[in-house]
C-alpha cells in the first residue's frame, strides 16, 4: 500500500530500490495515482522560494479599489448613457420629421384684426378680406389626403373662394357652417346671430352639428343663422318712384318697344289691357319702369336674358 509518506520519501530520495520499484508500479497503475503524485511533486518543488511569496488580505485590498471602481464605473457608463440619450433623441427627431412631413391634417395659422382691416391670401388662391375685430384660423399647408379646405372664422369678412370642385371650401363660423366650391360671399356678425350674404354662385349654409338643417343661398340671397335656426332675409321692398303720370298701357308699351326693342317683348296670349291707364315715370331705366309698374299696376313679367324682359300681364289695378 502506497501512501503519502511513500510519495514524500520518493521525492526526497529516501526509498530503497525495491521500494522505488514498488512505488513506480503503483504510480503507473492509475491516473488518479499519477494526479496525486504530480500534485505532491508540484507542491514539493514550489515549496522552494515560497518564503518570498507574500499573501494579502483580499477583502482589505478590494476595499481600496472598490472606491475607484465606483467613480470610474460612472465614467464608463457615461458614454453608454449618452448613447442611449442620443438614440432616444434620434428616435424623437425621426418621429418629429415623420410627423412633420406626413401629417394628415394641414397646419393652421391664425390672424386677428382689431381696429384694422386685413387680407389673407390662402394657398389655394382664395382671398379673405377681413373686417375689424375679426379672427380667422386658416390652413397654410395641405397634403394629398386633405379632402376639404377648412377655415374657422369669427367676425366680418368677405370670402372670395377659388373654385375647386374636388376640394370643398368649408367655413365654420360659430355653430354654423358654410360649404362652397367657389364663390364670393360675405359673413357679418349681426345682433341676431350670423349674417351671410351670397354675392356669386351657390353656397350651403348649415348648422354645424346637424348638416341637414341647411339653406341653399343663391346669388343675392341673404340669411341669418341664429339659435332658432336659419332664416332667409327677404329683400327690402324697392323704393317706388312716385313721380310720373298716367299713361295708356298701349302708349307705355309703344315707348318701351321703341326704346328698348330687343330687350322688351310681350308673351304670347299676354293679358294686356291696352286701354287701361297706369301710373309710371317713363323717363327712367327699363328696370325701374318695370319696378314702378310692379307697384302701381298689375304686372307680371320674367327675364328672358340677362337684361331682357317679357311681359305677360299689364293692366291697371
Amino acid at each position: 500500500m502506497i501512501d503519502l509518506k511513500n510519495i514524500l520519501d520518493y521525492l526526497n530520495g529516501n526509498l530503497s530500490e525495491a521500494e522505488e520499484e514498488r512505488f513506480l508500479l503503483w504510480l503507473d497503475s492509475s491516473d488518479a495515482n499519477k494526479e496525486d503524485f504530480e500534485f505532491m511533486q508540484h507542491v514539493y518543488k514550489s515549496s522552494e522560494g515560497l518564503d518570498k511569496v507574500k499573501i494579502f488580505d483580499e477583502d482589505k485590498e478590494w476595499a481600496k479599489i472598490e472606491g475607484k471602481l465606483d467613480n470610474t464605473q460612472t465614467k464608463s457608463l457615461t458614454p453608454r448613457i449618452l448613447r442611449v440619450i442620443a438614440v432616444a433623441a434620434s428616435i424623437l427627431l425621426f418621429g418629429f420629421v415623420i410627423h412633420y412631413f406626413f401629417k394628415q391634417e394641414p397646419y393652421y395659422r391664425e390672424l386677428v384684426t382689431k381696429d384694422n382691416l386685413d387680407t389673407v391670401k390662402l394657398i389655394d388662391g382664395s382671398k379673405v378680406y377681413l373686417g375689424k375685430n375679426s379672427k380667422i384660423k386658416y390652413f397654410i399647408r395641405q397634403d394629398k389626403k386633405t379632402n376639404r379646405r377648412y377655415v374657422e372664422f369669427e367676425g366680418n369678412a368677405t370670402f372670395d373662394i377659388a373654385h375647386n370642385k374636388d376640394l370643398p371650401f368649408v367655413v365654420k363660423v360659430g355653430d354654423a357652417g358654410i360649404d362652397v366650391l367657389g364663390t364670393v360671399f360675405k359673413i357679418d356678425k349681426v345682433s341676431a346671430g350670423i349674417g351671410v350674404e351670397n354675392m356669386q354662385g351657390l353656397i350651403n349654409l348649415f348648422e354645424w352639428k346637424n348638416a341637414s338643417n341647411n339653406l341653399i343661398l343663391k346669388q343675392g340671397d341673404k340669411a341669418v343663422f341664429t339659435n332658432d335656426g336659419i332664416r332667409k332675409v327677404l329683400p327690402k321692398p324697392k323704393k317706388v318712384n312716385l313721380s310720373g303720370k298716367y299713361y295708356k298701357v298701349e302708349d307705355v308699351l309703344d315707348y318701351l318697344f321703341d326704346k328698348y326693342d330687343a330687350r322688351m317683348s310681350t308673351a304670347p296670349y299676354a293679358d294686356i289691357a291696352m286701354e287701361d291707364k297706369v301710373f309710371v315715370d317713363i323717363n327712367q331705366s327699363l328696370e325701374n319702369i318695370l319696378s314702378q309698374l310692379d307697384t302701381t299696376a298689375v304686372l307680371k313679367y320674367r327675364r328672358t336674358c340677362r337684361n331682357c324682359f317679357e311681359i305677360s300681364i299689364l293692366k291697371s289695378k
Binding site: 494579502f56 477583502d59 485590498e61 478590494w62 479599489i65 471602481l69
Partner: peptide, 17 residues
C-alpha cells in the same frame, strides 16, 4: 461587480507577487 470582486480576490495576490 460581484463577479469582478470574486475575480479580483482570486487573482490579486498572484498578480502582485
Amino acid at each position: 461587480k460581484e463577479g469582478f470582486k470574486t475575480l479580483y480576490k482570486e487573482t490579486y495576490g498572484p498578480l502582485v507577487n
